[in-house]
Nucleic acid binder design. Structure first.
Ligand code: MN
Ligand code: MN
Ligand code: ZN
Ligand code: ZN
Lengths: 138, 138
DNA sequence: TATAGTATGCAACTAAGTTGCAAATTTCAT
DNA sequence: ATGAAATTTGCAACTTAGTTGCATACTATA
């Protein structure tokens, strides 16, 4: 619980109840979280607008990153790479379980190199794998 | 323009003005189209709800497919693979140009195989590359 | 050309997200 | 510890995207 305060301080963010609650949710969660997850799981009720703004702040600071999904929902997860204000380096594969719907950051799996047609150049590649996680293997 | 009618007939869809207009837009467009693109470019004005329903119908029939994007917009493009009712096989890489914002289906580029952690199994992999297209190369 | 079957357009509704602003909370220098 | 300044929060109001029910219009077929 002190880790939460440390992270907020390191990022020059004032220590507020909402930020502590949301950040500790991320720290204790294995997979990714949506806005709705947070609204549901935060014990002391948080205003939905505060949640929007807190998530935005955390993304800007490089504390969490947005996960691309194929169903156009928006998910967030802790940055484990050395991300900082305005500079994300979360170049890993994301995995969504079709059974439990948990979304994992596969930090250890590098994004594969895709060979593009002549004249095309890559800036960023997002890979989202759908399937069954280890807990739900079919 | 007869191709449009042929495609609709092949798929047992009645020939309506809206469907003809939307499908011919897809046939004459290089990249992908959003709902808003269609609303804008259809000359004879189409009701936005008709557009929603027509896109849904075309996706169901395997005439167009939904393209995963990283900015959570929804894009559609013609299926060139042999997709059919309820069975899509659009296993190709998608490319979004950061300059002209055109989204291309790179039919010729296969989705790379990602090696997952033990216990995880793949059902579908989506790859979205952002960068600069041949027309916009920096 | 009449009829049955579809598709369309409208209205009304829901869900997600944004912005402005006053009140509350946090920070920080005394 | 105290109070002022700076920041964050919660509310209201608004926007945008998408869905559903239903009466009307259109399309297919005999
Ligand atoms: Mn991640
Ligand atoms: Mn495609
Ligand atoms: Zn699972
Ligand atoms: Zn381009």
């Amino acid at each position: 619980m002190n880790a939460v305060i440390d992270i907020l301080k390191e990022n020059n963010l004032s220590i507020t109840d909402g930020r502590k609650q949301i950040l500790s949710l991320f720290l204790k969660t294995d997979g990714a979280l949506s806005h709705a997850d947070i609204e549901k799981e935060a014990h002391k009720k948080l205003d939905r607008i505060t949640i929007y703004r807190t998530l935005q702040t955390f993304v800007n600071k490089g504390i969490i990153h947005v996960i691309p999904t194929t169903d156009n929902s928006i998910l967030y997860a802790l940055c484990r790479d050395e991300c900082s204000e305005g500079h994300h380096h979360d170049k890993h594969v994301h995995f969504v379980c079709n059974e439990c719907h948990t979304t994992y950051c596969l930090e250890q799996i590098d994004v594969p190199q895709v060979s593009l047609p002549k004249g095309f150049s890559e800036v960023q590649t997002d890979v989202v794998v759908n399937g069954y996680c280890a807990k739900c293997k079919p």
